[in-house]
Design a protein around this nucleic acid. Structure first.
Lengths: 202, 202
DNA sequence: ACATTTGTTAACCATATGGTTAAACTTATT
DNA sequence: AATAAGTTTAACCATATGGTTAACAAATGT
């Protein structure tokens, strides 16, 4: 039997769907059981409680996101390349997992202690290398002076917000689903250009 | 008796607190009643149901946000001035209402039909004037070519994301509450500079 | 073949929750 | 003062919900 077919994995899979679209509070154990096609008691047999099942889903979700960040933070390319690659890769990734940003942001807000647990994990993104790269390029005159934290948050903001605020963005810019997707698609390069334009010395 | 002291208003006030911090699903009618210092039956007497009370709170919240957007969209100043003013004003405003962005983004995501109701309202932000201003300044050679929708979403992203992603931003940049506040404070000018740098022709 | 562990189910339970009701109290109205 | 209208409360109700139990089935080991 393949790993994906075990009851335990089917539960996690169904739980992911339900928790990510409805959040901890909106999710129902019965709905998860139904979606997994098993008895509700199984959820408790494998995961003990709603809280623990939720945490399993959350850690799983975060472990998908963290590597995306670590790429830009830990490789040895130039800041410009980091930004171009990240913007392209992150957007591509998020188009496949559109619920992920909202889910993480949301539940992190609901329970701030949660992030402490994540921080303990190895693989929690660390900005130090990115910061020293930015500072080095500023000293070399490649980039205009900018605080590395501010730059990093700007990069995140420009990449994540269109997913977080999808309904608002669609409504304000009067785009239907198709136009929204095209809009996001073009951001893969637009956003990188926007950032590079702003910070590159010339 | 002042308006703020009426039972009806006290309910709305307590409901705002509870709904904005816990969301529709996480909010409890009893908690709202307790916070307002009244009997739970009063909530139904004045607002009929949880759903309608929630909608009253939501519309109220959105009606605070919309004017913030309309300022940048409808006044006659240059794009540069619009961006500088908006970035400063919006950030100042959000520091006073830190739950607002998450609340709106979240509940809009939970129920996409909700935004249709808002669109019908007069005062729903309209981008047309902003777009033609951007295009005009591009033609005059003041700004580099950029799609006005993309620029607008960038402006929103850079201003809103630090509030939406507060726990994540704090954890990634290793800031405590005080350092986070200082970080946000400096964004009032940093973000405007970042945007102007990127789009201004020179 | 038998016993033991693991997996699965239907039925059940305690509690939480949104909502209702009927009576009491307060505030105008005549 | 009597009446009507509006406001407030305690007690109640039906249902939903997370979680448990006990019996049963399927593997697994000896």
């Amino acid at each position: 039997m393949k790993k994906e077919e075990t009851t335990e994995h089917q539960i996690l899979d169904a739980a992911k769907d339900v928790f990510q679209s409805k959040g901890m509070d909106g999710a129902r154990m019965q709905e998860i059981a139904d979606k997994a096609g098993i008895n509700k008691a199984m959820l408790h047999y494998y995961y003990r409680s709603k809280q623990l099942l939720f945490e399993a889903v959350f850690k799983n979700a975060f472990s998908l996101l963290a590597p995306q960040l670590n790429t830009i933070l830990n490789d040895d390319s130039t800041i410009e390349d980091k930004i171009r690659n990240f913007t392209n890769d992150y957007t591509t990734f998020m188009m496949k997992h559109p619920y992920l940003p909202n889910f993480i942001i949301n539940e992190l807000h609901r329970n701030e202690d949660f992030i402490l647990k994540l921080k303990e994990n190895t693989g929690f993104p660390n900005l130090e290398k990115f910061k020293s790269s930015v500072d080095a390029e500023i000293n070399k005159g490649i980039l205009k002076p900018i605080d590395a934290d501010q730059l990093f948050v700007n990069i995140l903001a420009l990449n994540i917000f269109p997913f977080l605020g999808k309904p608002l963005v669609k409504a304000l810019t009067k785009k239907d689903e198709k136009a929204y997707k095209a809009f996001i698609e073009s951001r893969k390069t637009e956003v990188a250009n926007f950032i590079i334009n702003s910070i590159k010395q010339h």
